[in-house]
Amino acid sequence: MPEARLVLATRNAGKLRELRALLRDQVPGLDVDTQVIDAVAAGAPDVVAAGAPDVVESGVTFEENALLKAHAVAASTGIPAVADDSGLAVDVLGGAPGIFSARWSGRHGDDGANLRLLLGQLSDVPADRRAARFVCAAALALPGGAETVTRGELRGTLLAAPRGDGGFGYDPILQPEGLDRSCAELSADEKNSISHRSKAFRELLPALVEVLR
Rank of each mutant, 00 (worst) to 15 (best):
A42T: 08
T150H: 08
V40W: 08
L30K: 10
D46T: 12
E63H: 00
C183K: 08
V48E: 05
R24A: 15
V47Q: 10
A41V: 03
G95Q: 08
S86H: 03
A70Q: 13
S182I: 01
E177M: 04
T34I: 04
A41Y: 12
A9R: 08
S76E: 14
N12E: 06
E18Q: 15
G78N: 14
G95E: 04
F201N: 01
A132S: 14
V60F: 01
V209Q: 09
N65G: 01
M1V: 13
D111K: 10
D54F: 09
P126I: 11
P172L: 06
V36D: 10
H71C: 05
A4L: 01
L208P: 02
G164L: 01
R24S: 15
T10C: 05
L179Q: 07
A75Q: 12
L88M: 09
V7F: 10
G178M: 14
V73T: 05
P28I: 14
S195Y: 03
Q175D: 06
A70R: 13
G152F: 02
F100M: 13
P28S: 13
E147N: 02
A127I: 08
S86W: 04
A83D: 08
V60P: 00
Q26Y: 06
E210A: 14
S101W: 12
S193R: 08
V92A: 10
F168I: 05
C183S: 13
E177T: 15
S86R: 00
D33R: 15
R107S: 13
F62I: 09
G152T: 07
A72P: 08
T148S: 05
L205R: 10
P45D: 11
K199C: 00
R197K: 09
R11V: 09
A9D: 10
R17N: 11
A49D: 14
A127L: 13
G120C: 07
R17K: 14
R130Y: 10
R213H: 09
A141L: 11
L119A: 09
H196G: 03
F201Q: 05
D25P: 06
G164W: 00
T77Q: 12
G166D: 07
R163K: 15
F168R: 14
E190H: 01
A50E: 14
A75K: 14
V82G: 08
A137C: 11
R213Q: 13
R116E: 15
R103Y: 02
L88Y: 12
D25T: 00
A184F: 01
R103K: 14
P176L: 04
C136A: 02
